[in-house]
Design a protein around this nucleic acid. Structure first.
Length: 127
DNA sequence: GTTGAGCGTT
């Protein structure tokens, strides 16, 4: 008969862990899109990225002095999954004749980090 | 009509 295999190979190597939990990159639902052509508009990017997921926000930086796009922008997705998918799908691809440079955008907020809205006025500082 | 790495309100 089948000899009793006393050696049960239930040894599971715990090598499969700590993979996507390593925040080596600010992978958020916000995507930084660079390498854009100076003729690209938000509508084009929204239409191009909405095909990979639900785009909630599309922001392209423009220049005041020239009025043209600075060549880079930001694309916000509904989930980081769609953002990651769009990045992996559109990163390195050509858009309007220019290769796209996509990467996870840094959490930049208007106003930056909290600047401690507290007037650290020493009491000996009288007018 | 110009130029081409990047990281935010043009």
């Amino acid at each position: 008969m089948f000899g009793s295999f006393g050696r049960i190979l239930l040894v599971r190597p715990a090598a499969i862990s700590l993979r996507h939990f390593c925040a080596a990159s600010p992978s958020n639902s916000k995507l930084f899109v660079g390498g854009l052509s100076w003729s690209v508009d938000e509508k084009s990017l929204h239409d191009a990225f909405s095909s990979f997921g639900e785009v909630t926000e599309v922001r392209i930086m423009y220049d005041k002095g020239s009025g043209r796009s600075r060549g880079f922008g930001f694309v916000h997705f509904a989930t980081d999954y769609e953002a990651k998918c769009a990045k992996d799908a559109m990163d390195g691809k050509a858009f309007l004749g220019r290769p796209l440079r996509i990467s996870f955008a840094l959490e930049k907020v208007r106003g930056g980090p909290v600047v401690v809205p507290r007037l650290a006025t020493p009491m000996d500082s009288r007018s």
